[in-house]
Amino acid sequence: MEFLNLPERTKGIRTNGITSVADFGTPMGELDHILADYGHIIDIAKMGIGSAYVTPKIKDKVKLYKEYNIRPYCGGTLFEKCFYQNKIAEYQSYLYKLGIEWVEISNGTLDIPIEERLNMIALFREDFHVIAEVGSKDANKEMSESKWKEEMKLLFDAGCEYVITEGRDSGTAGIYEKSGEIKSNLIHELIKDFDCNKIIFEAPTAKHQMYFIKEIGPNVNLGNVKLNDVLVLEAQRCGLRSETFFLEESECKLLL
């Protein structure tokens, strides 16, 4: 029975208000139980780093995610490994066989020039939905705000359906300082110039998630969410945690 006035959330197969989880090797039995309860509030599942390549029963895992209308894909590190070893054709074949329809083009580990990434996007777009990532996993590598915006524009113009802002699973690189503090000036610049519905902000901790919910709204796209945190995140989105308690119903329709 629903009786509270809560922020309005997107439903069904979402295109925004997305929760993208990071699966770093969740066993099949455990995953089955998690999805039975929380599958309806998970939209995308990244099989983190290059873990998909060594995951037992990976085809069964992909199938399980898809049974709950969750879009699975392999972490960008696997793409980068294949790029480094000139195995892109083999990677495409691997994704076909697994039934994976989404691919991430990233440069979190390798310094792949933007021109090369754009070529990869054009190649994969023929048969896959493409997500690209901006930012480095190396906390010592700094990108100017103008560089962030330049790359994001090029990636969107190339046809990426979403662009991820790098944050790592630790929240200490990319859009975050080494200390874990959010680069708020950068975020303000990005949301001023781009459609928030097309950006997935990596936000691995409750602190990071609440920042974006309060800054953008409950239907902000959030990534690198831990599987065991999805219910708490949904409660945060709905104003059911102290830090998001006073979200107004009107302002929460910002991204609908």
Rank of each mutant, 00 (worst) to 15 (best):
M28E: 10
L31D: 05
L31S: 03
D32P: 07
D32R: 13
H33R: 11
I34V: 13
I34T: 15
I34G: 07
L35W: 12
D37G: 11
D37S: 14
H40V: 02
I41Y: 00
I41H: 00
I42N: 00
A45G: 06
K46M: 08
M47Q: 09
M47V: 15
G48S: 04
Y53C: 07
V54S: 13
V54D: 09
V54I: 12
V54G: 12
I58P: 12
D60N: 09
L64H: 08
Y65V: 09
Y65G: 05
Y68W: 12
N69P: 01
I70G: 02
R71W: 01
G76E: 01
G76P: 01
T77Q: 12
L78F: 12
F79M: 08
K81A: 12
K81E: 10
K81R: 10
C82L: 02
C82I: 10
I88G: 04
A89R: 09
E90A: 14
E90Q: 13
E90D: 14
Y91Q: 05
Y94A: 07
L95C: 02
Y96S: 06
L98D: 02
G99Y: 07
E101G: 05
E101A: 08
W102Y: 15
V103T: 15
E104K: 05
E104P: 06
I105S: 00
N107D: 11
N107H: 10
N107W: 05
G108D: 04
T109H: 06
L110S: 03
L110V: 07
I112E: 01
I112S: 02
L118H: 04
